[in-house]
Amino acid sequence: MKLSILDLSPISSNQTAHEALNESMKLAQAGEMMGYSRYWTAEHHDLPGLACPAPEVLLSYIGANTSTIRIGSGALLLPHYKPFKIAELFNMLAVLFPGRVDLGIGRAPGGSAEVTNALSDNFLKNVGKMPELVRDLLHFLDNDFTEEHLHTKITASPFPEIPPAPWMLGTSEKSALLAAENGVTYTFGQFMSDQDGAAIIKSYKENFKPRKKGDRPRVIVTVSALCAETPEKAEEIALSSLIWEVQKDKGEGQLGVPSMETAKQTELNQKEKESLYKRKQKMIIGDPKDVKQKLIEWEKHYQADEMMINTITYNPKDRLHSYELIADHFIS
């Protein structure tokens, strides 16, 4: 099984943003040594406890401190930007780090309504124009606009020998069909979706139209997972991130991921307990045997080509150890 890393650059309650971003770099380095295929980082704006609003900036830091692991955005939120600018940014990354760059795109706002308005005057309009934005972005990446097109005389320089690999990220059939229509690879975010992912992926594969000769539909499924030596230890470590997610739902969580001690002492009402239980059901939590079995089950259920793992812990050492335990049981 091919395994990859999705990093949200979480900030723990005892960390600064600088420390959290440095831990992201250490995670990418460790993931490379462990044999993970990719390291992707996400775009979030003014969200409590998350340190990365600009994947392209963090990826330049990650790329400079690694050698072989693929690096990419999971996701770059296209409706906020012009396709030409995104192509320039990721072409430059692909020039700096040849053959290693993935450009994962999505259409979520990545923050509050107030943040969305601060970033873009036309976000909702651009969401409606997403098919057009995606087509233009792909043409810029391929440098193949027709002679009749407005953009035929410009190039998203510097143009790399190996272009960034485009991916569409989503949690709905709409995103899957957009990926299929444009012949790009697809990532389904199981960890943040209540949709029937297997049906969505099936629809993607059935409607896939190759963008280039030899292209085939390929799928990554992203899951939340936490692995420790025992199921009990894994449950204890996972509680911090679960409590933090519940706090964020209430508009709290500004202090970042709480310690295990704080998480254990946090009182929840019935609605919050139900939310925590629901989130926990979407996670893989256990010892290496349990986690391996569940990953294999989900890989088969979704017919995925690759599984991408998102792990959030209070202590960065617990996060690294979780990825290490999983790699030891999967990656030779």
Score class of each variant (00 low, 15 high):
293 Q>C: 02
113 A>W: 08
327 A>G: 12
86 I>L: 13
330 F>N: 01
229 E>C: 04
23 E>L: 01
31 G>R: 11
174 K>P: 02
72 G>R: 02
130 M>G: 01
124 L>F: 11
5 I>P: 03
60 S>Q: 13
137 L>Q: 07
10 P>F: 10
30 A>G: 02
303 Q>F: 01
85 K>H: 14
101 V>G: 00
276 L>M: 13
177 L>D: 10
118 A>R: 13
326 I>Q: 12
9 S>I: 03
40 W>D: 05
144 D>Y: 09
190 Q>W: 11
31 G>S: 10
153 K>R: 13
75 A>D: 11
188 F>I: 11
172 S>G: 07
242 L>D: 09
309 I>S: 02
136 D>M: 12
282 K>C: 07
200 I>K: 05
146 T>R: 08
60 S>C: 08
140 F>Y: 15
145 F>T: 04
87 A>N: 09
22 N>E: 14
204 Y>D: 11
170 G>E: 06
8 L>I: 13
194 D>M: 04
85 K>V: 14
62 I>Y: 10
317 K>C: 02
191 F>M: 11
183 G>R: 01
192 M>V: 15
150 L>A: 11
175 S>P: 05
152 T>N: 11
56 E>V: 07
272 E>M: 08
205 K>G: 04
168 M>R: 07
80 H>D: 08
91 N>S: 10
159 F>Q: 13
219 V>N: 07
281 Q>Y: 02
181 E>L: 01
211 R>D: 08
284 I>Y: 00
44 H>W: 08
294 K>P: 02
203 S>C: 05
25 M>P: 00
158 P>S: 08
242 L>N: 06
201 I>M: 05
324 E>Y: 09
80 H>E: 07
61 Y>S: 04
284 I>H: 00
68 T>A: 07
286 G>A: 12
88 E>V: 10
21 L>K: 06
129 K>I: 00
249 D>F: 10
268 L>H: 05
319 R>Y: 01
274 E>A: 15
8 L>Q: 12
56 E>P: 05
54 A>L: 01
155 T>F: 00
201 I>Y: 02
35 G>Q: 12
140 F>T: 09
34 M>Q: 14
255 L>Y: 06
142 D>L: 08
289 K>T: 15
86 I>S: 03
18 H>I: 15
16 T>E: 14
166 P>E: 09
266 T>P: 00
252 E>Y: 06
221 V>Y: 00
132 E>P: 00
4 S>F: 01
116 T>F: 02
171 T>P: 03
30 A>S: 14
141 L>E: 05
271 K>S: 15
239 L>T: 05
204 Y>H: 11
162 I>R: 04
215 D>N: 12
236 E>P: 01
221 V>H: 00
109 P>F: 08
311 T>C: 15
174 K>I: 14
230 T>R: 04
206 E>W: 06
